[in-house]
Write a protein that binds this DNA or RNA. Structure first.
Length: 186
DNA sequence: CATGGGATTGACT
DNA sequence: GTCAATCCCATGC
């Protein structure tokens, strides 16, 4: 049995832990360089409204994928965290492309490596992750492999991107100095 | 059943 | 810098 990330702890801790881990789907894979934490106690989180059809996954057991459609166009990938009954997830916002770059280019319609996975909607397109993978286990079709690095990356925290509520929380985490981020850290 | 709002991106001025 | 694309879902009548 391969080692797994522990998703049952605090969502902010998991957001930090996931930096440096590798996301794989089929022949494509990339290393996580940017994450954001969302928790049902704050209004930016989808689970803030409580248990609905949409948020059922978020309140379910940890270690599963929450994939939803954003702006009618993009699929965004999250890892459900904290014990069952707590609505929380980590949004995967950017990857350093590692494997299957040609397939990523074909899916994205772009050639520059920096344009392949430098955003939450970009990386799902590059890896071929769609809504059909919502509420499926991480470790199934979509895998998140624990960090294989000698040293943990240095995490830098800042405000989350693209939200209008709870902008005071510094729950965006980036690998310091990474050139693969969706946006630079301020 | 109608409405409104996005955890975004790419094209364009 | 501005702006449209496009659809799922929660909410309210």
């Amino acid at each position: 049995m391969s080692p797994q990330v522990n998703y049952s702890k605090s969502v902010v801790d998991v957001a930090r832990d996931l930096l440096g881990c590798v996301v794989r789907h089929g022949e494509t894979a990339g290393r996580i360089v940017e994450t954001e934490a969302y928790h049902h106690s704050e209004p930016a989180c989808h689970a803030y409204v409580g248990l609905t059809r949409r948020t059922r996954v978020l309140f379910g057991p940890p270690g599963r994928a929450y994939v939803y459609r954003s702006y009618g166009i993009h699929s965004l990938l999250n890892a459900v965290c904290e014990p069952e009954g707590v609505g929380a997830a980590v949004l995967i916002r950017a990857l350093e492309p590692l494997e299957g770059l040609e397939l990523m280019r074909a899916r994205r319609g772009r050639t520059a490596v920096r344009d392949l996975c430098s955003g939450p909607g970009k990386l799902t397109e590059a890896l071929g992750i769609g809504l059909e993978l919502d509420d499926t286990p991480l470790g199934g079709a979509v895998e998140i492999l624990p960090r294989d690095l000698v040293e943990a990356p240095i995490a830098v925290a800042g405000p989350r991107i693209g939200i209008t509520k709870a902008i005071d929380l510094d729950w965006r985490f980036c690998v310091a100095g990474s050139r693969w981020l969706s946006r630079p850290v301020r």
